[in-house]
């Protein structure tokens, strides 16, 4: 997909930081406010896809390599599964950090309260892992399809 006009590129430059901050806010506050790993990851990936559509897939591929996105996605998946396995002494997906103090170990007071970030055990880490996985997965899907669309548009048939 080729580059769009200067107006579209400027507006996407202007909007990208706000979309990224909103998406990472949704990921990191997943245990306090509505949202979580999948939702925030979808928001961040839509920001990256906006940049991809505005600048064209070739220039975007020179900034973000598809190989690195695959590595990030595998890191997210492995982190999620290994966090699930770490609680295996009691049960699979057991929340082994909750209520122990330390990092993410506090218990919030009963009932409605504004909440603290330092609660909920393994939930923020799992949110982060799933968010990383969704960001890398959706961005790499659109990136690979964009590169292939450039190829098909040229009408080339030269297989490797």
């Amino acid at each position: 997909m080729s580059e769009m006009s200067k107006i579209v590129r400027s507006i996407s430059n202007l909007l990208l930081p706000f979309i990224l901050i909103y998406g990472f806010y949704i990921i990191l506050h997943g245990h306090l406010t509505p949202g979580g790993g999948f939702q925030g990851g979808a928001v961040v990936a839509s920001g990256l896809v906006m940049v991809l559509v505005a600048y064209g897939s070739e220039r975007f591929a020179s900034w973000v390599k598809e190989k690195h996105l695959s590595v990030l996605e595998s890191i997210g998946a492995l982190g999620f599964i290994s966090l699930a396995f770490l609680g295996l002494s009691t049960a699979f997906f057991y929340n082994f950090l909750a209520g122990k103090g330390g990092l993410f170990g506090d218990i919030p007071p009963e009932g409605s309260n504004p909440g603290a970030l330092n609660t909920a055990g393994t939930l923020p880490l799992m949110n982060l892992a799933v968010g990383l996985k969704v960001i890398a997965g959706l961005a790499s899907i659109v990136l690979v399809m964009g590169l292939a669309s450039h190829y098909f548009k040229q009408g080339g048939e030269n297989d490797t």
Binding site: H31, G36, A84, T119, G121, L123
Partner: peptide, 29 residues
């Protein structure tokens, strides 16, 4: 709120009580 420690009950269901569903979703992606 006592067992998981999260204020958001939806997230505590998705990632703790029903973690297998999230694992399946991640596998599908």
């Amino acid at each position: 709120q006592d067992e998981v420690g999260a204020n958001n009950a939806v997230t505590s269901v998705v990632f703790d009580y029903r973690g297998f569903d999230t694992l399946g979703e991640a596998t599908i992606l």
